[in-house]
Design a protein around this nucleic acid. Structure first.
Length: 110
RNA sequence: CGACCGGGACGGACAGCCGCGUGGCUGCGCCGAAAGGCGCUUUCAUGAGGAAAGUCCGGGCUCCACAGGGCAAGAAUAACGGGUAACGCCCGCCGAAGGCGACUUCAGGAAAAGUGCAACAGAGAUAUACCGCCGCCGAUUUUCGGCGGCAAGGGUGGAAAGGCGAGGUAAGAGCUCACCCGCCGCAUGGGAACAUCGCGGCGCUGUAAACUCUAUUCGGAGCAACACCGUGGAGGAGAAUAAGGUCUGCCCGACCUCUCCGGGGAGGUGGCUGGAACGCAUCGGCAACGGUGCGUCUAGAUAGAUGGCUGUCGAUUACAGAACCCGGCUUACAGUCCCGAUCGUGAA
RNA sequence: CGGGGUGUGGCGAAGUUUGGUAUCGCGCUUGGUUCGGGACCAAGAGGCCUCGGGUUCAAAUCCCGACACUCCGA
């Protein structure tokens, strides 16, 4: 079960206190929330491009999380920040970047 | 066939699997006395643009202000006629500029109501006389000086007092005349701007995207508007002076717990999509556009729905994402198709 | 959604109101001074004034459109 994150203070708490791991394409912040399900937030800033580019970035990130939902542990707040290089990246490269970062931050099931 | 001009349409298509928003239907669960509401689920329907963009104009809608009229201030617009709910938009037409042409572009009112500005150059910039031309006088007579007349020629400048020819003169000059140009008035044509090898008068620098004048228009703010519901906490009134809790072990005191009022922050619901709508036919109009008939319903999200994989065609895919809704303007754009017109070349 | 500001040599600014000559400081180059360097003195280079149009005889300046950066209010 995945619910979207909305409040700005939750994002700020994750940036400040959450565990993070990143690479050239994206950065993942995560923290235990004690709710029994995961909450997902996406950060796609205006630096990446205009509205069409940003919308497409969000959709691809959401699709990656949906396809690998079964491999994630439950009970975490997760924020994915897209970096500039991700705009030109292929879907497969983006998937590999997500999985390696998620593994390093420790939210993949063993 | 080539070049160019104007107008219009499209802007990936089809199939399969998984996933998302909205609406309907089926079933299940929970809450409720019921009406009904909420969640999940089956299946069906539907789901971004020609600019959705920039936010440059005009309106609808909502709230606030004034509820009658005028003036001033400020802002916007500017030939003329029409279209429109309205516009700074569109169509037609006039004038000017550009193009061989189809056609394109123009903030295109008033400088004779007034004020300002026009650097440098140049003798002189709204007025003049440096060189020059001519006459008279004088002298040391191929020349120079003085007095007077002139504004044709030279030079400067973006601009030098209408242009050109003839007459005229000492030399000249709209001084006079013919033709042309411009402005004003009348006449004729046109619905009007305006036009005219018609008549008369006049000859005036440019700049109003300098101030200004004239005419017309304009109250302000915006869907985070606005309306409704509104946990807790804070405020006011009441009930009770009983019981309990906290400060504090006890007394006093204060606060909370009960009921009503109340403005309303967080949050939620409405506003939210059927409209100056779209398509086709027909009638009126040069056209913009309008009338009539028939048909269609076509996103409504709220951290914000369209993505991933595979196959075929086509190609390497442009610019680009609704956020209250319409009418325009401006800007960005790979490529494809259709219609009409012009110029050139060749053939019949 | 609404409103404002800025863009000028390599860097930071003035000049825009009232149109004609682009100026100042730091930096740069050359020369002098010093045994050498710094400081100081003298000379010099470097600008289509963000971009595209328009008005004007003439535009950094006035007008229109675009781009980039930035600030404010709900």
């Amino acid at each position: 079960m995945v619910v979207s994150l909305k409040e700005n203070n939750v994002f700020r708490r994750l940036y400040y206190k959450g565990a993070s791991a990143g690479n050239r394409l994206l950065v993942i912040y995560c923290r235990r929330n004690g709710l029994g399900y995961n909450r997902l937030g996406l950060t796609v800033s205006t630096k990446l491009g205009h509205a069409v580019v940003r919308n497409r970035m969000r959709r691809r990130l959401r699709e990656i999380v949906r396809l690998h939902e079964g491999r994630l542990q439950n009970g975490y707040d997760v924020v994915i920040v897209a970096r500039t290089a991700a705009v030109e990246a292929q879907f497969g490269a983006l998937t590999r970047a997500f999985l390696t970062a998620a593994d390093r931050v420790g939210i993949l099931k063993p």
